[in-house]
Design a protein around this nucleic acid. Structure first.
Length: 514
RNA sequence: GGUGACGUGACCGAGUGGCUAGGUAGAGGUCUGCAAAACCUCCUACGGCGGUUCGAAUCCGCCCGUCACCUCCA
């Protein structure tokens, strides 16, 4: 069985086949770095992290691109509107790029904490002005954009006349431009330059006070809101990439415009074969968003309490929580849900520890080969117990293949864990399973928990406190003149790079300087 | 108004035309110096009303309710 993904473009689950196997190009619309990231901003990166991890697990060579948008988009559509980045920079009295760098650094820290592997390429919009200008020139050459007063707009009605075969503007979001026009209030401020209200900016002329500006064939200005993703996706993944994703709220207009730009440029493609959208995070059933102010900043979430949450939750708990819902369903945050997630996460981690013990006590060889969809099950020698275990172990991959169903995959891992726990308490059954099947199943469990789902153990014990406890045992042993124990403790700590010092003031420790 | 989702047990959250995930919480039990963990058992639901069907929570229709997009948003 192979991976299938829900493609927004076709509104169907489709079997995933790379355009140029074994290479796979994945693009995720990254953050606009003018403010601190909130929980909602983390869902896409976590979903796409699991996706790219799984694609790699399947043996594909993935190039994962997640951009940083550091060209502030305008707060309003008006020509005089203030840039988000500029606004933040003015407030803090620093350079706009300092704002961008600051929040980029923070974003990377948070994503790393959440277990998201760094993207292979993390292009910045400001570093790709030339590429964006080139796309605009192509679109103009194709007669689908027009320049007005130093700004360039995409001609949506003109595009639709040319493109009824490849699909019109609105094909992704399933909207007709007639409906769009009917729902648009005409004569909004600053839209007078547009020929149609549906047209969108490819390049905006910078007003005199606008700080973030670049030269272009049309004068000094800055690129439009949707252009950077088209330009950078094309530069690093080619004119047509395998997968392009983002939050559901980016589907329209952002991704719709991207497709129009790519079709309207010399690329003449939908930019990506699979358009994948993750659903939103809600608070009490309402979307978490900046504008509604009901967001939970990641930094605050990790330390807590904040907003609707009475406690803090560690990054791995948050990751587990996010993966326990399917990516296309909305997920509601609450203390109850996160606390349940925390216990579940710890249970999964305890499973890893159990397997370490099982391996040692059973002196297992972990040499048995597993294929990418789980352990091999073709051996004739397998006992019924072993077969059953291997069948359980095949489930996680099966469920991830079905549109990345992480909740079911996790449920399968819990089933597997229950089996491990039972076996651990029952030597006879363990023997019945045999070392090969056990090793294979254990390998699957480890691989899926750690490498595919990306859950790592978060040490909860405080090392200093454990050390203090050890030192108190040391002191006791010394007082009892139980020197054999004393020596054992000394040696154990030494192996950890720590030496015990008996001073006049009492027992102390220091890092070994050897 | 247009488009698209969704309403599942105490909570979170999968899924499916019949075999009734999983996590958390609760009850009982095994184990146990205490405790924890683990395991076993129990609590077993699909908004309402019709229809299709041998059979629907799952398909269809209507109704009620919630949400999202159509403006920046992951």
């Amino acid at each position: 069985m192979s991976l299938s993904l829900y493609n927004t473009l076709t509104r169907k689950k489709e079997e995933f086949q790379p355009l140029h196997a074994p290479q796979v190009g994945v693009y995720l619309c990254g953050p606009t770095v003018y403010s601190e990231a909130h929980l909602g901003n983390a869902r896409g990166p976590v979903v796409f992290d699991v996706l790219t991890r799984y694609l790699r697990h399947l043996g594909y060579q993935v190039r994962y691109v997640r951009n940083i948008t550091d060209v502030g988009h305008l707060e309003s559509d008006a020509d005089t509107g203030e840039d988000k980045m500029e606004k933040a920079a003015r407030a803090a009295r620093i350079e706009p790029m300092q704002v961008a760098q600051h929040f980029t650094n923070r974003y990377r820290q948070h994503m790393l904490a959440l277990g998201c592997l760094p993207p292979d390429i993390e292009p910045q919009a400001s570093g790709h002005i030339i590429e964006q200008v080139q796309v605009i020139e192509e679109i103009i050459a194709n007669g689908l954009a027009y320049e007005v007063n130093g700004s360039v707009y995409f001609d949506v009605p003109g595009y639709n006349e040319q493109h009824d075969k490849e699909g019109r503007y609105g094909k992704l979001a399933n909207r007709s431009i007639e409906d769009q026009l009917a729902g648009t209030r005409v004569g909004l401020e600053g839209q007078s330059e547009k020929r149609s209200p549906l047209d969108f900016a490819l390049w905006k002329k910078a007003s005199p006070e606008h700080i973030m500006r670049w030269p272009s064939p049309w004068g000094e200005g800055f690129p439009g809101w949707h252009l950077e993703c088209s330009a950078m996706s094309r530069k690093y993944l080619g004119e047509l990439s395998d997968i392009h994703g983002g939050g559901l709220d980016l589907m329209f207009p952002h991704h719709e415009c991207e497709i129009a730009q790519s079709q309207g440029s010399h690329a003449h493609t939908d930019e990506a074969r699979f358009w994948v959208h993750n659903n939103m995070i809600t608070v009490n059933g309402t979307k978490m968003s900046k504008s509604l102010g009901n967001f939970v900043l990641l930094g605050d979430l990790f330390t807590g309490p904040t907003g609707p949450l009475a406690f803090g939750y560690s990054p791995m708990v948050v990751r587990f929580f996010l993966m326990q819902a399917h990516y296309r369903s909305p997920v509601d945050v609450s203390d109850d849900a996160l606390q349940a997630a925390r216990k579940g996460y710890r249970k999964l981690m305890n499973g890893l520890r159990l397997l370490d013990k099982l391996d040692v006590s059973g002196s297992l060889s972990v040499g048995s080969e597993e294929n990418k969809n789980g352990p091999a099950t073709d051996s004739q020698q397998l006992t019924a117990e072993a077969t059953q275990l291997l069948q359980l172990a095949a489930k996680p991959a099966e469920f991830l293949n079905d549109d990345l169903n992480t909740p079911r995959a996790m449920a399968a891992l819990f089933d597997l864990l229950k089996r491990f726990n039972t076996l651990a308490a029952n030597p006879a059954a363990l023997a019945e399973v045999g070392p090969e099947a056990l090793a294979a199943a254990a390998g699957t469990y480890r691989t899926f928990v750690q490498d595919v789902l990306g859950l790592r153990d978060e040490p909860r014990a405080n090392a200093e406190q454990l050390l203090d406890l050890t030192l108190s045992f040391y002191s006791e042993a010394k007082a009892d003149k139980a020197y054999d124990k004393v020596d054992v403790i000394r040696a154990a700590l030494k192996s950890q790079g720590i030496v015990i010092k008996d001073t006049k003031a009492g027992v102390e420790w220091a890092y070994s300087e050897e």
